[in-house]
Every structure is written in structure tokens, then in C-alpha cells.
Design a protein around this nucleic acid. Sequence first.
DNA 1: GCCTAGGTCCCGTTG
DNA 2: CAACGGGGCCTAGGC
Lengths: 256, 256
Amino acid sequence: MEVYTIVPSSLAEARDFLVRELERRSWIVFFALCRALYEGRGASESTVGDRVVIIKPDGSLIIHSPKGFKPLNWQPETSSIAVSLEGGLLVLRALRRSPREILVLECSSVYSISCGVSPEEGQFWMYMSEHEIRDAIVSNPSMIEDGLTIIEVERPVEPGFIDLYGRDSKGNIVVMEIKRVKAGEEAVRQLLTYVNAFKVRGVVVRGILVAPALTESALKLLMVSGLEYKIIDLKKLYQQLQAKRVKRTTLKDYIL
Amino acid sequence: MEVYTIVPSSLAEARDFLVRELERRSWIVFFALCRALYEGRGASESTVGDRVVIIKPDGSLIIHSPKGFKPLNWQPETSSIAVSLEGGLLVLRALRRSPREILVLECSSVYSISCGVSPEEGQFWMYMSEHEIRDAIVSNPSMIEDGLTIIEVERPVEPGFIDLYGRDSKGNIVVMEIKRVKAGEEAVRQLLTYVNAFKVRGVVVRGILVAPALTESALKLLMVSGLEYKIIDLKKLYQQLQAKRVKRTTLKDYIL
DNA sequence: GCCTAGGTCCCGTTG
DNA sequence: CAACGGGGCCTAGGC
């Protein structure tokens, strides 16, 4: 990857550079003193401040303030980014078609602009998703309960999908909702919706919430609703999965 | 703001530069060919790819791939970022205490590094939040229903808070849940939880979902649950609020 | 620290 | 296209 940086001596120079690199669909990063105006699903405005602006080859635009993970303003995907000089300011207009949104960036000063064309995308893998946990249970249902058999994964029901649908050793239908993080009330409500979808059709089923932990109020709501839960040990599960997994890399040397 | 950029001729030079600027709590942005390993609440790994890495003065670390709004890897807040040269790679270890997470970035090549110390933070205002909508209803409850009076805002209930709590013209207690976007089932379930919190204590209340729109299944669930809804016009509300608001800036010249 | 709820949530998947 | 649910969600506000 070739990265090229300029320290523009004027906003006109910055504009020309941006126009050319947007045309080439380069990856653009610049430091600027600017303010942003946004209107769409919500609306925002700001006073001038030092910002880092990223424009990606796919048109995504991200404006970062000096603090925190979240950008101050953004446009996840743009249909067009227009650059112009207006009243002594460098103005970028980033439009989005659907939902219809506009983000206007007014730069009073551009400190530096870097750009590069990126050939190396690389691959990415995420582990320990709800998906992975679900698949692990499918291949070993006894981790939930002895004698449990899984009949269907992602079974469509009235609204949405049941994570796991099975039958216990006594022949009862079991509906399972899986959470990869501590489950709150919302998870219980979700499970309850599924169980009720059966109940209204006169079918009584067991509902089991599968999670590494439950909040207190979630537990209370679960009890009141006649539902059950099963705590799973994510660390153990991760190590089991890790052992089976094609070893691509390892963090062992880094783990503290 | 002063922005300084180097094109390091070696990883050692990049390391020295990073160490110094991290020390100074500068704002650091660099382009690199690298891969990231993450382990914490989840786990991820990747092959090498071209990335833009941002390290903010507060220690937030963000790694962007060439696509989309979301970073590939990140650390919202770090307790420490260590930089070292290991086996011909520039390695950054970003630790987070709680939750305990580690992000390791292995750079095989650093194309350029920019840094700057930012004095101008600027201010930021967000409009049309649920908060704003709620306040607008408080100052004019008739937009929901004639004769409605608001008794309490954010009234604490069994678990959580009721957005608006009031009384209708006939003396019935009214519980309102506000959504700034189209409401789905989840919003209905939330409202239902609040209404049920009264019901279990033998108090019958009206539940009204206030939103710009409802999904079909949300409407169905709402009907079945004996709840009500009120559609609000966000565009109209925004213009009303905008008129009252202290005019800081305007997008009028930009709106298409 | 835990927990609840909002978000311009984003994002993938599916009908 | 709309809608539903996951996410390393993040972040703010209460306790």
C-alpha cells in the first residue's frame, strides 16, 4: 500500500487533493478544524473542533473527536460526497439515499491529508458468537440436560425464530433461547413470546434460557413466567471449541 | 493543532515514534499492513490486511478495514498500550481491565504515522432524541389525547422506568412508552411489562405506545395485549422544536 | 460495580 | 424493500 500525505497550504489545495482522491476511490484520512451538521433520522450540530475524518473506498465517512470509541458524526454509506469551497470554508456534503440523510462538514482549516489505495483486504474471523454456542449445544445436547435431543435449529415461529427446538427425555417439547452474555429481562421476554406462541395454540412447552449468567430481575421474571434456565461456562466452551478449531493463530504468548 | 507525519524507514523508527507520542498522549493515526488478535468477551483473529489505526488521547484504539462504518477491532478504553519489536514485527498490546480484554496488533509494515496534539474539543448537540420528544409531549400533552395530563416523567417502576405517566380526562392512569423510530414488538413487550407491573398490584392502567410508526407484528401484539398507540409526526415535531430552539446553525442552504 | 434502556445504533439474514 | 435479532454492541444514568 502506498500512502501519500500532504500538508495543504490552502483550502483550495486541500479541495483539489480531496476531489482527485475521491475520484480514485482512495482511502482518505485527514486532520482538520471543522464543524459538522447532520440531518436525517436525527439531527446534530457542533461548534468547530479538531477532528480526524476517514473516508473509505466504499464511501463510508467517519468523523472522530479526540475522545471515545464512537465517532461524533458519520455516514455509513454515501451515495455521493461533494467537495467545494464556500465563503472561505472547505465544505464536504455527504448524501445518503435511504434513509435520506445529509452530513455537511465545514472545515476552516485542514492540517494534513493522507491517502492510499489498499490492495490487501485480509480475512477476519469472529469466535464465540451465539451461533457458535448454539452449534456446540447441537453437537452435545447433554450439556443442557441429559436425554435432551435437538429437533430443529432456528425454527421459525409466529414472529422470529427459536434458537433451539427439541424434546426432553420425557417427551416434552423444549424451546431454548441462547444468550452469549449475561441475560437481562429482554431475553426472558423474548423466550416468553416464543413459549406463548405455542400456548395460544394449546401446546404446552418448556422454555429454557441458556446463558452464562442472568440478572436478578431477569431471574425473577423467568420464575414468575414459569420458565427455566441453564447456566453455561463460556470459558470452558471456548477452550473446547478452540481445541477442535483449525488453529490459525494463537494468543498464548500474549495472554497475561 | 499541529499535525506531524513520518514515513518510517524501519519498524524500529515506527516503534520509537509511537512510544514517544503515546507518552505525550497525542492523537495518533497510522496506516499499516497488520493483523489483529482479540480475546475477551469474544475472540477474533485475522490475516494481514491494510488497516487504518487510530489511537486517541484518551487511549481508545480503533482499527479500520477499508469497508463499512464499523471498525474491525477496537478497544473502547485501554489501561495500557505497550509497543515492542518482536520477531521482525511491530507489536502493540492494548489491555483493558474491565472487562478484561486484550487486543494485539502485529504490524509487518507501517506506511505512515501522523500525530497531533488537539486543543480544540468543540461542543456537540444532538436533536430529536427520545428525550426531546418526551419533553415536547410534556409541554403539550394534547398532542397525544385531549384532556391528558402528565403526572411524572421517567417514573420508576418494578424494573426500569416509565417514559411518561399521566391521567386521562376520565381519571384513568395512563402509561406511555415513547419510540423515536418505528416501533417493533420489543417496544410493545416493554410497555406490556410496565402495564403488567401495575396489573399484578391490582391496578388497571391504559398503556399507550407513542411512535412515528409501528411494524405489523408490533401492532398485532399490541392489539392482543389490550394496549393502545399514538402515531406522532416527527417532521412536524422537529420543525416545532427547531423554531423554539436557540438557532445555532442552519442546514437550510444545504438541504436538497 | 451491576443493571436498564437508548442509539443517526450497525449489520446480516430472510421473507 | 421492510423487519427481526445479534453485537466484543457503546454509552449514559441510577443505584
